[in-house]
Simulated scan of single mutants.
Amino acid sequence: MSQILSKSPKHCAKQGLSIDKSYKKLFFAFSAFFTIVLAFIFLIWLILHPAKPQFSLREADIYQLNLSGPHLLNSSIQLTLLSKNPNNKVGIYYDDLQAYAAYKGQQITVDTSLPPFYQGHEESNLLTAFLEGTGLPVAPSFAYEVRRDQTSGRIVLNYKANGKLRWKVGTWVSGRYRFNVNCVSVMAFGPTAPTGPLSSIRGTQCSTAV
């Protein structure tokens, strides 16, 4: 005769309670571990407190800026920016970099991509891009605004860059943060046609937002 073994409901309840306690202990252990890791990273972040990168306009030369139709613009500009990492303990990865030129709030070149790069502690890098546009639509007032600037003897352009950056502390690398750069360039622009490209009068410090 075969013997059938059965466990009482009370025994099953005790076993289930024991398993629940084990899972809870494991959950609390993992939670405590991740909390300590996050607190440690946050503490390092507060101690190092990385400063945002600095950009300045080194050179901007306009080779072409004319209308091919009533409201269509052709443009070509050579741009050189200086990028500096002011941090002595934090490196910076730059990703998805793009640059373009604007005039009185209107984009006058297409977005131009720049290669990604890493910037070490207190390191500086020159960034060069050739900005251009063919048949770009502009506002009806564009030609009037340019003629007025030509009469005043100078033209002001904005050179803008944007992308994503990651902070690097030791072997730890942060998530991505979007940043925007705005550089203002003042160029001599008289009534007579220049023999060469229009060049920026002086280098300027750019504003950077992260």
Rank of each mutant, 00 (worst) to 15 (best):
M1K: 12
M1D: 09
L5I: 15
S6Y: 14
S8D: 13
S8E: 13
P9V: 11
P9K: 06
K14G: 05
G16R: 09
S18D: 09
S22T: 08
Y23W: 10
K24P: 00
L26H: 12
L26R: 05
F28P: 01
A29M: 09
F30R: 03
S31Y: 06
S31D: 10
A32I: 10
A32T: 13
T35I: 13
T35A: 11
I36G: 06
A39P: 05
I41C: 01
W45K: 08
L46S: 10
I47M: 15
H49Q: 09
H49T: 13
P50W: 07
A51T: 15
P53L: 13
Q54M: 14
Q54D: 14
F55N: 06
S56A: 11
S56K: 14
L57D: 13
E59Q: 15
E59H: 12
E59V: 07
E59A: 15
A60D: 06
A60N: 10
A60Q: 10
D61K: 12
D61M: 05
I62P: 02
Q64Y: 00
G69W: 02
G69A: 12
P70F: 09
I77S: 01
Q78A: 11
Q78L: 06
L79D: 04
L79W: 15
T80H: 02
L81N: 11
L81Q: 04
L82A: 11
L82N: 14
K84W: 11
N85Y: 14
N87G: 01
N88I: 12
K89T: 15
G91W: 01
G91M: 03
Y94L: 03
D95W: 00
D96V: 00
Q98S: 10
Y100K: 08
Y100W: 15
K104E: 03
T109Y: 10
T109A: 08
S113E: 05
S113A: 09
S113F: 12
L114F: 04
P115Y: 02
P115C: 00
P116D: 03
P116E: 01
F117M: 04
F117P: 00
Q119C: 07
G120C: 04
S124H: 07
L126T: 12
A129H: 07
G133N: 06
V138P: 02
V138K: 06
V138Q: 04
A139S: 12
S141F: 01
S141Q: 06
S141R: 01
A143K: 10
Y144M: 07
R148F: 00
R148I: 09
D149V: 01
Q150K: 12
S152F: 05
V156L: 06
V156E: 05
N158S: 14
N162Y: 09
G163S: 00
L165S: 02
L165P: 05
W167K: 03
W167S: 01
G170R: 03
G170E: 05
T171N: 13
T171A: 09
W172R: 00
V173L: 01
V173K: 08
V173T: 07
S174D: 09
F179P: 02
N180Q: 14
N180H: 14
N180F: 11
V184E: 07
S185D: 11
M187P: 06
A188P: 01
G190M: 02
G190A: 10
T192L: 14
P194Y: 10
T195L: 15
P197Q: 05
L198F: 03
L198Q: 02
S199L: 04
S200L: 05
S200A: 15
I201L: 10
R202F: 09
R202T: 07
R202P: 03
G203I: 07
T204Y: 13
T204P: 13
T204M: 07
Q205F: 08
C206N: 15
A209W: 08
